[in-house]
Design a protein around this nucleic acid. Structure first.
Lengths: 187, 187
DNA sequence: TAATTTGTCGACTGATTAGTCGGTTTAATA
DNA sequence: TATTAAACCGACTAATCAGTCGACAAATTA
């Protein structure tokens, strides 16, 4: 049987996405997770701590997937294509996690410290962008701006494929999306 | 003195963004808006109706700004540049409204009917994209995908400028952002 | 083995909340 | 003016919630 802490996080994720944070009583989380409320508060001092932990654990999982199959010797384009495809792949396999970020990365329930910690984990991807700028393969735009534009673009792509899942079977639309992505950032 | 209904909407917006939906009691909205709770429920049957109305009114306001200063005779590129700049301008002038969409457009508090109604209002912008595809000025990618990619890109740009407001004084970064945007979608 | 720590339970509580209701005031209409 | 309707008020309530507590069980350490 699954670890109770993990079970609580998994159940919270689903309920927070489907019902919202304050509309999800801790009693319901405990019930659906098959634990007592006391156990929930044993692992997480407060409900806020629970959602902040959830945020960081999902971010960790996501980053691990995003940088998967990237080889040091790959070209910048190949690396960024892999990140792009990994992002869509992750969102497809972890729909609740992706929706969680869509809903909560701008919400007041996640505190600034947690958001900053989450951001730190992107350093590997930021390095790829910096490398690309040095070699003039990418546009000479501030790394932070390039990053936000790219992330926004990917989020839009994911939103489209979430609402049009059948379009993922054939790879052409996804390839088109990457072409547009690349044309936008390449120098 | 401002209309009470309007005052309630304005106050709700601020509080929902700063505190979240369920963490904002109707009693607090009423208090801050300077009305009685009875008045709030006179205008909005439930709290859900309130937030859904808010969503649609903000969307209406946004669309009106986005298509501002667009002339029928403009080129596709000029039209889309205007929409791009209008979007950033709107977000800058209406930060709460923009954050509201970031937080709530994926949230369970806004029902599907409301979201669909909001989407309908984009028809004018969708037409520009379709025109651009017909004349092969834009990439031959499905309109819905182009739209979501574009919207995501713009949201990312806005997020960057929200966190780096000083970068808006000089227009160069904003122009760079549009160049990247245009390179991405142009055929 | 004994002692201590960690995990688990669920009934309980003080505080909070969405929405109601009966009434008053203001505005519109006949 | 008289009548009706719409706007507005705020005290009130039944329901709900985050977090506590004391007790017991399991695992870890001495």
């Amino acid at each position: 049987m699954k670890d109770k802490r993990e079970q609580i996080l998994e159940t919270s994720l689903k309920l927070f996405v489907e019902r919202g944070f304050h509309n999800t009583p801790t009693s319901l989380i405990a019930k659906e997770a098959g634990v007592a409320t006391g156990t929930l508060f044993h692992y997480f001092k407060t409900k806020e701590e629970l959602i902040n932990s959830l945020y960081l654990e999902i971010k960790d999982d996501m980053i691990a997937v995003l940088v998967n199959k990237i080889d040091t010797h790959d070209t910048i384009k190949a690396k960024l294509k892999q990140v792009f495809m990994n992002s869509v792949f992750w969102a497809f396999n972890k729909p609740f996690q992706q929706l969680f970020f869509m809903q909560y990365s701008h919400s007041p329930y996640i505190d600034q410290i947690t958001k900053d910690q989450g951001m730190q984990r992107f350093s590997g991807i930021l390095e790829i962008i910096e490398d690309g700028k040095k070699t003039e393969i990418l546009k000479n735009i501030s790394t932070a701006l390039l990053f936000e534009m790219a992330q926004g673009f990917i989020n839009g792509t994911i939103k489209y494929f979430r609402e049009n899942q059948q379009k993922l079977k054939d790879q052409t639309e996804l390839e088109n999306a990457f072409s547009a992505f690349w044309d936008g950032i390449k120098g």
